[in-house]
Design a protein around this nucleic acid. Structure first.
Lengths: 163, 163
DNA sequence: GTCACTGCAAAAGGTTTGCAACGGA
DNA sequence: TCCGTTGCAAACCTTTTGCAGTGAC
């Protein structure tokens, strides 16, 4: 019940599979498959830790045909609203992004190295039911993100924080 | 277990009580009680829905002795790190704040009017234990925020969203 | 008297927007 | 051809910073 249904490490996601799936879904929803977007998708699939829009902009400028800043922001916005990238909440000012897939997912973020574990099933059902009953709110959704230190970082004992 | 331990509506919090408590706690931690801060505290206690730093800056400028922008940001930062104001995550760019009190608290936010219900006890214990076991993460904390529509907004049937 | 705090103004990000040109379907 | 998409540059908005002066303790 309060067991995460599925746990998957975003690190080393199947790059081509994700890119192809997003492309297919994109066309299916009457969007256009353009060069700049495909190149951005590849960059996004390569990240194993949350990245910012500016970071993606900078990184994609190592390509021959780098995208404009507006394209980066607009593409991220579209990917996010379709569920293909998730927003990660950090303590900083900029928004963090990480490749994901549509559905009810949550993230476990390492506060040292930033690596992300995605999981389904938060076991919040009872709480939401009770809250709804006690407050008369019609509950629509929730934001859950968990912080911790991954196995590697615990071993190393580093103390810089990404959170 | 997954019952919220305590539920309280932030609306109409006891203004003077909160201000006095914060002031006392502030002095106890060797901070100085200055005019600008006390005036800001009063404004903060008055909000019934999340406010932004700029909003607080603007509102406090109806006083005779308005604070500088830096003071507003610095005060919010201090209040937040001491637990006296909570950060509310919105879809927008700016950070939302709401008066709170120290402890392990979460927020239920109305996506229509923005009113906030604070509650203790998220019943995440089992999930965290299982996640920790499955991922070998040392779990340090979590961010949980719930969205919904309050009773009043459900009646009215308004559809603008704050979320 | 000391030093935390304040205000100002400028700078520093991060993100959005207008608009003309481009190019998938 | 049509219209979604792009790039550029400027605008915008929120937040941070440096510094000299102020005032709480």
């Amino acid at each position: 019940m309060t067991n995460p249904d599925r746990v998957s490490k975003t690190v080393r996601m199947n790059l081509e599979a994700w890119v192809n799936t997003v492309c297919a879904a994109w066309q299916a929803t009457h969007h256009r498959l353009t060069g700049p977007r495909i190149r951005l998708l590849r960059h996004i699939a390569n990240y194993t830790t949350p990245f910012s829009a500016e970071q993606l902009y900078a990184d994609s400028h190592q390509d021959d045909m780098p995208p404009g800043r507006a394209t980066v922001y607009r593409t991220l916005e579209q990917l996010h609203s379709a569920g293909w990238v998730a927003r990660i909440h950090t303590t900083g000012t900029e928004t963090g992004y990480i490749a994901s897939w549509p559905g009810h997912l949550h993230h476990l973020v390492c506060t040292d190295c930033g690596s992300v574990i995605t999981f389904e099933g938060c076991g919040l059902g009872d709480l939401l039911t009770n809250l709804s009953y006690q407050t008369s709110f019609a509950i629509e959704g929730h934001l859950l993100q968990i912080y911790g230190r991954c196995a590697e970082c615990q071993e190393v004992g580093v103390s810089d924080s990404v959170r």
